[in-house]
């Protein structure tokens, strides 16, 4: 082997090694979810689906899934209702404070979750939102707005600006233009955005951690299970979440790329 191909090999090897590092832990979870044993030791002796059946008999876990789904659906819907019109206005008009809104809307993503969490924890009761699943939902809506606004703004920017003008030119009023020309053309992006929001809401911890009272959401239930000790059941639910999230995210990426 000459030096050039050795160098090439080393570069490719280290690149692939890092990629494997990114996926190795996930593969481990999936593999061990089929481990019949209670300890996650090497090598796996027997394979079984028993942890999946345990999963479906765990009432608390099932309830937390229900809780997470409801919160995700409600907060995604509200975030879309608030976020899409605002993104449209931010795309279409120039106004003072646009940059500021842009910065503020992103704060739940750019600033550390712990600060956002404790800030909401301290302030929500003042506006009559008690620390509860409602508070969690409100927190989720707030950070999902960041997702909706950025994703939809990016989509509007990619839209041919002349489509809207062509609609006006042909006599369509602004609302007819929005519903007949704009909306059908951003439909796929909206679906992509919905999937992303659902996944992010179902996985959210930092804000939920501080605002929750009563029933757990799914990630917090997993957190609780982990604190109680590693139960192989967590492997199984993690595998299911992993499959669900990956599918939704890949779908969302694909939809967002569509013209």
């Amino acid at each position: 082997m000459n030096t050039t191909s050795l160098k090439n090999f080393l570069v490719s090897f280290s690149g692939i090694a890092v990629l494997l590092f990114l996926y190795f832990p996930l593969v481990v979870i999936v593999l061990f979810s089929f481990n019949a044993d209670t300890v996650n030791s090497f090598p796996i002796q027997h394979f079984s689906l028993k942890w999946y059946s345990v999963l479906f008999r765990d009432d608390e876990l099932l309830q937390s899934i229900g809780t997470s789904i409801s919160i995700a659906l409600i907060s995604t819907a509200v975030a879309l209702l608030i976020g899409i019109p605002a993104a449209y206005a931010m795309h279409k008009y120039d106004f003072k404070g646009k940059k500021l809104i842009d910065k503020i809307v992103l704060m739940p993503i750019t600033l550390p979750g712990i600060v956002t969490g404790v800030a909401m924890l301290s302030f929500f009761p003042f506006v009559g939102v008690k620390i509860s699943l409602t508070a969690v939902t409100f927190g989720h809506i707030t950070f999902l707005c960041a997702i909706v606004v950025t994703q939809m703004l990016a989509r509007f920017k990619r839209l041919d600006p002349y489509l809207e003008q062509a609609a006006y030119d042909l006599g369509a009023t602004p609302s007819a233009t929005f519903f007949k020309v704009i909306l059908p053309n951003i439909k796929t992006a909206i679906i992509g955005c919905v999937l992303l929001c659902l996944v992010l809401s179902m996985d959210e911890i930092p804000v939920t951690f501080f605002l929750i009272a009563g029933n757990n959401t799914l990630p917090l239930e997993i957190y609780a299970m982990m604190r109680r000790g590693i139960t192989p059941e967590v492997n199984a639910i993690s595998t299911l979440i992993f499959i669900f999230s990956t599918t939704a995210i890949l779908l969302s990426m694909r939809l967002n790329k569509e013209k």
Partner: peptide, 11 residues
Amino acid sequence: WVSYIIRAYAW
């Protein structure tokens, strides 16, 4: 985009 808790749990 994959759940933080799962990725931490893997370790």
